[in-house]
Amino acid sequence: MKHSTRRGFAAGAFALSAALLLAGCAGGGGTDSPDDADGGDTGELTEVKLQLQWLPQAQFAGYFAAVDQGFFEEEGLEVEIIPSGGDIVPQDALANGDVDFAIAWVPKVLGSIEAGANLTDIAQIFQRSGTLQVSWADSGIESVADFEGKRIGSWGFGNEWEIFAAMAAEGLDSTTVQIITQDFNMNAFLQGDIDAAQAMTYNEYAQLLETVNPETEELYQPEDFNVISYQDDTTGAMLQDAIWADTERLESDDAYAETAVKFLKAVVKGWAFARDNPEDAADITLGQGSGWGPSHELWMMNETNKLIWPSAGGIGIIDEAAWQQTVDGALAAVNETGAHLITEEPPATAWSNEYIQQALDELEEEGVDVTGEGFSPIDVELQEGGQ
């Protein structure tokens, strides 16, 4: 983190910066700790780098909203949001010191921690799993118990572990499964190359519902598919989008720890904005370079909100039972080659509610709704191709 006198940046400049970073960023060196996390009396902003795990889209709307609405600036921060797209592994960028915070799924980082990364989950933004396994209605695949011997689609990159955690919970033989590597679309499934395709509630499932069924010449309908939700239909659900910080810096650098709290406060306000203004939040992500059409983006915003809100303990609070279920699933999971994700419990430093709880306490004093108890999703009508 460094200090800057710049007070913000226009959306166009932000998008250009993100594009340049996506094209050429993996290095750039570590970030320096600030002398004073709140800018002291100089009026300067503390520069912070946030690494996303994918390209700009409503899955990350809260972070973009925090920039757009000035919430980071209110906390004395200037945040640079760095997309990935598969070329940057978020937890690696964080462990290498290239960024200050990163967004990544918990099981993926558990594997990195066992391999030597020293990282801490400081806010569990997604409280629920959004992963689905989708098959045709007449396929006979109605539960995880039907996976054995089937062609199961997955994107890889650690996204497959929820499949194997669910199979392990059912006592199934994962070596009987043929994992078919999917692109981040449903083409292989629609072409009949996959029996049960991986899909996120907020993305690939929508891609199916905005596709024309050649037999009816109308959009596919939910009844055309069997949908297995890892959250609702299995005991293999794993925690997903979390905010990760550098453990050693949290423990040794007071300025970094203070900045973490300020960062989380702004993020929470960003997600509260996205909850209360889903249409505006979807427009913000479109303006930051999302390649999806407007109805798809709004669907994604709505479904992402469902994974966050309501949050009884407050957005970002790590539920110990859900954490342990993720760890137990990661320990039990064995992939189609017989490999394990992790072989031992992660250290106690792998998660902490200290920083998010401080942020929530301060926000509640400011009158911010951090639980979304009254949250109600909107109705979104998908259009062909997500337009």
Rank of each mutant, 00 (worst) to 15 (best):
M1G: 11
R6D: 10
A10V: 09
A11G: 11
F14L: 10
A15S: 13
A15P: 05
A15M: 11
A19V: 06
A19S: 14
L20G: 10
G27C: 05
G28Q: 09
G30Q: 10
D32E: 14
D32G: 09
S33K: 01
P34C: 10
D36P: 00
D36S: 12
D38G: 08
G40A: 13
E44C: 09
K49V: 07
L50N: 06
P56I: 03
P56Y: 04
Q57Y: 12
A58M: 08
F64L: 07
A66H: 01
A66T: 05
V67D: 12
F71H: 13
L77M: 05
I82Q: 00
D87N: 13
A102T: 08
A104V: 04
A104N: 11
W105D: 13
V109Y: 02
S112C: 07
I113N: 07
A117Y: 11
T120N: 05
A123L: 05
A123P: 05
I125L: 15
F126H: 14
F126W: 15
V134K: 07
S135E: 02
W136R: 14
S143V: 06
S143D: 14
E148P: 02
G153N: 00
G153D: 01
S154V: 06
W155T: 13
E160C: 02
E160D: 10
I163Y: 01
F164V: 01
A168Q: 05
D173W: 06
T175I: 03
I179M: 12
D183L: 08
G192F: 07
A197S: 14
N203D: 15
N203V: 09
E204M: 15
A206G: 15
A206S: 09
E210F: 06
T211I: 02
T211V: 02
V212F: 06
T216N: 08
L219R: 10
L219M: 14
Y220G: 00
Q221W: 01
Q221E: 15
P222D: 03
D224V: 03
Y230H: 15
Q231H: 09
T235R: 11
G236R: 02
A237M: 02
Q240Y: 14
D241H: 11
I243E: 04
E248W: 04
L250T: 02
S252Q: 15
E258Q: 15
T259A: 14
F263E: 02
F263I: 04
F263M: 07
K265T: 03
G270E: 06
W271Q: 11
A272V: 15
A274K: 04
N277T: 08
P278S: 06
A281K: 03
A281R: 06
T285D: 10
Q288T: 08
S290F: 09
S290E: 09
W292M: 13
S295I: 07
W299Y: 14
N302M: 10
N305G: 13
I315E: 09
I315V: 15
G316H: 02
I318Y: 00
I318D: 01
I318V: 15
D319M: 01
A322E: 14
T326I: 07
D328Y: 08
G329Q: 00
L331Y: 04
A333T: 05
T337H: 13
H340P: 11
L341A: 09
E344Y: 07
E345H: 11
E345K: 12
A350L: 07
S352V: 05
N353W: 07
E354K: 13
D361V: 12
E364G: 11
E365P: 03
V368W: 08
T371L: 05
G372I: 06
E373P: 02
F375Q: 08
F375C: 08
I378P: 04
E381C: 00
E381K: 12
G386F: 07
Q387K: 11
